[in-house]
Design a protein around this nucleic acid. Structure first.
Length: 479
RNA sequence: CGGGGUGUAGCGCAGUCCGGUAGCGCGCCAGCUUUGGGAGCUGGAUGUCGGAGGUUCAAAUCCUCUCACCCCGACCA
């Protein structure tokens, strides 16, 4: 077992940090709450970006870039927004050696500056919809930080759209939520629950916030992405109006939606094991590593040749950049194994003298730590199929774990007991009141993760107040 | 901001009570031997002991002040 990683059982938070260190994904920056994303970690982010960016563009969005610094008074324009964000804003007060006339806020999110620009760009219904996304960094001054999950600076994308009608905005909000769901489930192999945030948990300034909620291996919930229908709140605050089809000047309807580098944390805590990182093939920067087992000078040339041949064979069917041959001869085989294991590479092909004699190679899958001999002639097919199997298996394992850790509470007592003994998600009836939500949070630390979208709405009674409830909502202790 | 803790080599720590001039493990570098699941031996490099002031012949160690970070609570993608 890994020597440099605390087991999950022993100390889950420490395990998480150890996996990141062992995989060389990130390191602490000199400024509290900030992190350096190292090449191995950034490659994962780039893979996420590439895929999502394509999905955004396939649905008609284009990328743009808005500035990091925002005039402070912009935030004051939307009451709920300023109240929600001002405690966590970093503010620039000096520039060029002088105190600034007006302080500049380092963006915690860009609704305000984008709203300002949209009011200039949108004049007529013919200008709508506006479908823009930006990839950038934001700063939120956090009291307690954790690598990837919560850092003062993080990378994300924020989509900002403007529409003619409420219905169109709502459709867009849900369309993007669905893209997030598909991305998480199909690429990251992370099962998520989609639903709406309660009033208490929604984005400051939004009409409604929708979310995808994932469950980590310790039973805690992770909000993995959000999509907001902003209604006309920002349109009114920033005077984003247009001449409609009836020749009336009216406010637009806007949306915003985002996912961040937090997804990397979710990826780690969904799939990784006590040996380190485990990555699903569809997002792994390196999908296959081919490793000649060099034990002396005799076979070295031949081993490398077989490795290179396999690489070129696989290159026709995979992205050549996602195949690595580790021909280093200064490391012992064991050290190389552990290196790639801790990088989470899904498939490892080992070629040693013993294999050559049998015209075979050893093929190991990272997710199950399983290894078998495969005839050289069929390796390529085997690897391609194995990548596919791993992707499916990882998702299914995560989903069945999530389902096993999701329970229903019929009473508040039962609710508390489940939280204490097992954790995980709890479905329970709730009367929709903010007071009850708050009471549960104070007494148990559990929050409403979302009001799930569901076809079968079963009425019941609130576990706290006993009042009627239209459906069960999803509770959990969140990261 | 409350409660608790820690600052000594790249990392993890001992040394502090009882002052005497810097140590262990891992890592790093070199060489040799090794090499199918985290190697062995030999040699080597590395420190303003968090910072400032003080007491003393002498301070990592005692005194005063200060800074930073970590953990636990209240806010959050």
């Amino acid at each position: 077992m890994a020597q440099n990683i605390t087991s999950r059982k022993e100390n889950y938070p420490q395990w998480y940090l150890d996996v990141i260190a062992a995989g060389q994904l990130a390191d602490y920056a000199p400024v509290k709450g900030c992190m350096v994303i190292r090449p191995a970690g950034f490659a994962i982010w780039e893979a996420m970006q590439a895929r999502l960016d394509r999905m955004f563009k396939e649905t008609g969005h284009m990328n743009a870039y808005f500035p990091l610094l925002i005039p402070e008074h912009f935030f004051a324009k939307e009451a709920e927004h300023v109240e929600g964000f001002s405690p966590e804003c970093a503010v620039v007060t000096h520039g060029g050696g002088k105190q600034l006339e007006e302080p500049l806020v380092v963006r915690p999110t860009s609704e305000t500056v984008i709203g300002h620009m949209y009011s200039k760009w949108i004049n007529s219904y013919r200008d709508l919809p506006v479908l823009i996304n930006q990839w950038c960094n934001v700063i939120r001054w956090e009291m307690r930080t954790r690598l990837f999950l919560r850092t003062s600076e993080f990378l994300w994308q924020e989509g900002h759209t403007a529409h003619e009608t409420y219905e169109e905005a709502q459709e867009e909000t849900l369309r993007m939520l669905e893209i997030y769901r598909r991305f998480q489930e199909e690429y990251l192999a992370i099962p998520v629950i989609t639903g709406q945030k309660s009033a208490g948990e929604k984005f400051p300034g939004a009409l409604a916030t929708y979310t995808i909620e994932a469950m980590m291996q310790d039973g805690k919930a992770l909000q993995a992405g959000t999509s907001h229908n902003l209604g006309q709140n920002f349109a009114k605050a920033f005077d984003i109006t247009y001449l409609d089809r009836n020749n009336h000047q009216v406010p637009v309807w806007t949306t915003s939606w985002g996912v961040s580098t937090r997804m990397i944390g979710g990826l780690i805590m969904t799939h990784s094991d006590d040996d380190g990182l485990v990555l699903p093939p569809k997002i792994a920067p390196v999908q296959v590593v081919i490793m000649p087992i060099i034990t002396g000078d005799e076979n070295q040339v031949q081993l490398l040749e077989v490795a290179e041949n396999l690489r070129s064979e696989l290159s026709h069917r995979l992205d050549p950049l996602q195949i690595k041959v580790d021909g280093r001869d200064n490391l012992r085989p064991a050290e190389k194994f552990f290196h790639w294991i801790q990088q989470g590479v899904p498939v490892r092909v080992e070629i040693g003298p013993k294999d050559l004699q049998k015209s075979a190679v050893m093929v190991a899958r990272r997710d199950l730590r399983d290894k078998q001999s495969v005839p050289l002639a069929g390796v390529s097919d085997h690897v391609i199929q194995l990548l596919d199997t791993i992707q499916t298996d990882m998702f299914e394992r995560a989903r069945s774990y999530r389902d096993e850790q999701t329970r229903t509470a019929k009473s508040y007592d039962e609710f508390k007991q489940i939280l204490e003994s097992a954790g995980g998600f709890i479905r329970a009836h709730w009367n929709g009141s903010a007071d009850v939500e708050e009471q549960i949070k104070t007494e148990t630390k559990a929050t409403i993760r979302c009001i799930p979208f569901t076809d079968n709405l079963e009425p019941g009674v609130c576990i706290v107040s006993g009042e009627p409830s239209t459906q069960e909502v999803l509770f959990g202790i969140a990261y």
